[in-house]
Computed example of a mutant assay.
Amino acid sequence: MKIAANLSMLFNELPLAERILAARVAGFDGVEIQFPYELPAIRLKELLERAGVPLVLINLPAGDFMQGGPGLAAVPARQQEFDAALQEALTYAAMTRPACVNVLPGRLAEGVTREQALETLADNLRKSAEAFALLGVRVVCEAINPLDMPGFLINTPEHLQALLERVDHPNCQAQLDLYHMARQGLDIAAGIRLLGSRIGHVQFADCPGRGAPGSGGVAFVSLIETLREAGYDGWLAAEYRPDGQDTEASLGWLAEWRQR
């Protein structure tokens, strides 16, 4: 497994264009960016090539989600907006070739039943999986804890499993964030075993606090072994808050992880 830096949360002391090389110098094998669209795709491609690191993951544009709204992917009335976001991400991915694109489920919209939201989400994931398969890019969908993000549609490994069964497309897999599972007090190892070969990407932060590994109580060593036993050999992406430090000062865990 290789380790990536999430540049939407790490190296925020630098402009986005400078974070890629900073991550490489710090010892990361790759980078992911939640919403990279402030940089033209050709510019991001040049920066990645100059630093010699791959782009691991980006998110599909999500409308008003980051401002507290329901987003796009599970809202029937926002189908045209979702389709436009899909086209934007496809154009971007054709240039930057991320390994994965994450389609955020979003929050349950007012006036929409959970069943309507899930059906819309499944249809949009299936459509996205089909489209990105032509580029060799995996589509993933993640569960987020409802304590930090009330109203989020997908919360647990069981939710993810049911959603993937509904989508039923080989290019759609689970994005498993260990922090979001720990924040709910879930049995993370059981969740890993449940999803097994359907895990397409893994993110992590410690809990409580969403800080660097070692700042909380998540048993990362055993969880990484459980991931290996489940057959996962993909990326581990650091998506934590450096907690007032600059990012470099928070990386005491990285050398030990690379040795393991």
Rank of each mutant, 00 (worst) to 15 (best):
residue 1 M to Q: 01
residue 2 K to Y: 09
residue 6 N to F: 09
residue 8 S to C: 08
residue 8 S to R: 05
residue 9 M to E: 05
residue 11 F to E: 06
residue 12 N to C: 14
residue 17 A to K: 15
residue 17 A to M: 05
residue 20 I to C: 09
residue 25 V to P: 00
residue 26 A to K: 09
residue 27 G to F: 12
residue 29 D to T: 07
residue 34 Q to Y: 09
residue 34 Q to D: 13
residue 35 F to W: 15
residue 35 F to C: 08
residue 37 Y to K: 13
residue 38 E to Y: 03
residue 43 R to H: 12
residue 45 K to S: 11
residue 46 E to D: 10
residue 52 G to L: 10
residue 52 G to E: 12
residue 57 L to K: 08
residue 59 N to A: 10
residue 82 F to I: 08
residue 84 A to S: 15
residue 87 Q to M: 11
residue 88 E to F: 03
residue 89 A to M: 08
residue 91 T to W: 05
residue 92 Y to A: 05
residue 94 A to M: 04
residue 100 C to K: 14
residue 101 V to A: 12
residue 104 L to D: 07
residue 107 R to A: 10
residue 109 A to V: 09
residue 115 E to P: 05
residue 116 Q to N: 08
residue 120 T to N: 04
residue 121 L to I: 14
residue 121 L to V: 14
residue 122 A to V: 11
residue 132 F to H: 07
residue 134 L to R: 15
residue 135 L to W: 10
residue 144 I to H: 01
residue 144 I to W: 05
residue 146 P to V: 12
residue 152 F to L: 04
residue 153 L to R: 01
residue 159 H to A: 03
residue 160 L to Y: 00
residue 165 E to A: 10
residue 166 R to P: 01
residue 172 C to M: 08
residue 173 Q to L: 15
residue 176 L to G: 07
residue 179 Y to G: 10
residue 179 Y to W: 13
residue 180 H to E: 02
residue 185 G to V: 03
residue 192 I to T: 07
residue 202 V to Y: 06
residue 204 F to A: 12
residue 209 G to D: 07
residue 220 F to N: 09
residue 226 T to G: 02
residue 228 R to K: 12
residue 230 A to Q: 06
residue 236 L to E: 04
residue 243 D to R: 13
residue 243 D to K: 09
residue 244 G to Q: 04
residue 249 A to C: 01
residue 249 A to I: 01
residue 250 S to G: 06
residue 251 L to R: 11
residue 253 W to V: 02
residue 257 W to S: 00
residue 258 R to F: 05
residue 260 R to T: 02
